[in-house]
Design a protein around this nucleic acid. Structure first.
Lengths: 182, 182
DNA sequence: AATTTTGTTAAATACTTATTTAACGTTCTT
DNA sequence: AAGAACGTTAAATAAGTATTTAACAAAATT
């Protein structure tokens, strides 16, 4: 080993990984993580496992930054903790199955969106009902309230659909419709 | 009109809209828009149409802020320009079909992610091929390069899936699997 | 042609978020 | 029990974004 061919190969290997690391880091903003977390995940994607000091070393960033980044990535289930006897250091491994990351991230996101909006609509419809119950309200206003109500009912169709989408992803049913390999 | 019942009804109507506006604005961060754009869309959601001055008025914000916000919303196809004769002012209407907004936003997002990463992988694999071609490279290194290559091939399965997902949303095929109404 | 209306771009300010440095608490080692 | 290793929290700094004010350009009205 350590001849010129090997040196060249090592360089090429790093170069190859570099392309992918850079791009993953760049597109990670989509997953609502900080640049540090993006770079970190992209780096871990090509490692078996890493501890905080290795991360700090590899990325040239502070330890608290690594600590918070890795926590955020854990929330998105893009990184998981590895229990490793012998060492006191915590070690982590990147989730390399992008399908899993997709599932975890978007389901969380859409669930929140659906839940919050459904709740708001519920409140709004409750309030509108109070208008409908009052027979002395001008028909013009009644009409307007009715239109808003209809619009909300319409939007509920979307949020319910979103919930079913989430369910079908979580249950992996979606792959029956859209297989991982065509 | 203008009796106490009507006054009450008007208030209730605004209250009802308020709940929904607030929540939509809050969950709009998901769509990568600024708070101003979020509030704007949420407001427009209950209006037939608005021009820049009405937006400024209604939200109590500056006109350039409205201008840039509305442009961003147009990019996401969440707002469209309405051509309106007589007035020199540009008027805009919110896209009220959330399915359309979903489609437009996520397809754009995922397309970008898939395209960029596929391109990076292509470059990386090209570089790795150069290692494979050199017979003098240590088998250990060869092995490592091979593993990276396999990992990239694996991830391509995901990106291709993402592309097919986008296609099935754009073509509305997805609604055959997951109907808007169950 | 001069003035007003409308919308956008550019520069400046304000605000928010990310990252670092410093301090802390816990657990392990000696 | 004292000191070192490790990770996290808190405060301070740095960086990045959003928003506003000011200046500009285009088009329309007078």
């Amino acid at each position: 080993m350590a001849n010129s061919h090997d040196e060249m190969a090592k360089e090429k290997l790093e170069e190859a990984k570099g392309y992918v690391i850079e791009t993953i880091a760049e597109t990670m903003d989509v997953y609502g993580v900080t640049p540090a977390a993006g770079k970190l995940y992209a780096t871990m994607y090509f490692k078996e496992q890493m501890n905080l000091d290795e991360m700090r070393e590899e990325l040239g960033m502070s330890k608290p930054s690594m600590s918070t980044s890795v926590r955020k990535l854990q929330e998105n289930e893009m990184v998981k903790k590895k229990f490793q006897k012998g060492s006191r250091k915590h070690t982590y491994a990147a989730e390399k199955d992008f399908f899993h990351s997709f599932m975890s991230y978007y389901c969380q996101l859409w669930d929140r969106e659906a839940k919050m909006n459904m709740e708001a609509i519920k409140q709004a419809e409750f309030t509108l009902d109070q208008i409908f119950e009052d027979e002395n309200v001008a028909s013009e206003l009644m009409e307007e309230a009715r239109e808003i109500y209809d619009q909300l009912e319409q939007s509920k169709i979307y949020y319910r659909w979103l919930e079913r989408l989430v369910a079908s992803i979580r249950s992996e049913e979606i792959y029956e419709f859209l297989p991982k390999k065509p």
